[in-house]
Write a protein that binds this DNA or RNA. Sequence first.
DNA 1: GGAATTTGACCTTT
DNA 2: AAAGGTCAAATTCC
Length: 341
Amino acid sequence: MCTMDSGLKLEQTSLINELTQGMEIAKQLRFHLNSASSDENRQLLLQRILSSYEKSLLILKSSAPTTGMPESSISGDGSPRSEDCNGGGFKDHHQDQNVVSKKRKVLPTWTDQVRISSENGFEGPIDDGYSWRKYGQKDILGTKYPRSYYRCTNRNSQNCWATKQVQRSDDDPTVFEIIYKGRHECNQTPHTAPPPPPPTPPAAASLDKQNNHHQQPPNNMLFNFRTSLTVNTQDLDAKDMTSPLTSPSTSFEWMKSQNQDQNFPFSKLVHDEYQDSFSPYQMMNNFGVFHDLQHSGSELNEIISTNNSVTNSPILDLGFSIDSVVDLDPNFPFDTPGYFY
DNA sequence: GGAATTTGACCTTT
DNA sequence: AAAGGTCAAATTCC
């Protein structure tokens, strides 16, 4: 059930999210100004900051006094109402939430979609730079491919409770949907992992092995394969609009330095099931010009295409959960080394 | 031999 | 009751 309150709160949260994100991107830009980052990267960050402003203004305008329905400007006409506050099929127990939310530590949750593609087929680990240990695999009803469950290797040693689920897309086997839950509180430094320079990528691991990401030197292929990803932020426990999270591990500069994969068609990644959940935020976020407004309920998706062209908005998103800032996780470790640049 | 993965059993949630 | 998520013993890998 999506109440008025949640609608208003959603808007507030969105605004805070946007402004906060803009600030963080500005921080990133500051970092890039002091580094050997390419001018293109800086331009992209700048573009994102501008987009953030645009979105903030959009939200403010949409919540103007005359607006009877706060979400009206956001919610398009096409989205199914039944989805309302519940993002993309995730559970929503309103009553429970009131009771539980105070007790349960809410883990920030977001989704990456990672496309692996190559002439050689789909292979290579989806290495996000973190060290994961697989602890389970399940066949999921209605899906072709099993879902794999990973937890941080440093769970015991460093009390790091980050987990992720990896599942290959039914529609496009080259796309893997990765659901991250919880942030790393260990001392892994995914971004700083030196890109290994093996001249030739090792022969492909089998698909069964492809999720075997250790901290071993990242496979060259993996970066080459990683031609695009979607970040879809979701908050399983709150119905509020959530903020764009960012992949904690996208080694953007490195990927950019690798010349790859041509033109990943943007729309290709837009599966039917996701089209319904695109929000104006995500569109505006990277492109700033999209106005096909569709309400996405509690979802806020973000498309990131790591192509070479600026028009395709190769965006570097750095790990950041605004949810946690706003109202969810008081223990959000912003001071975690390496989390922000 | 230690660490990671596999996989069926068990637990939780709906 | 069924599906999703986690555990843990067995197995495999390095």
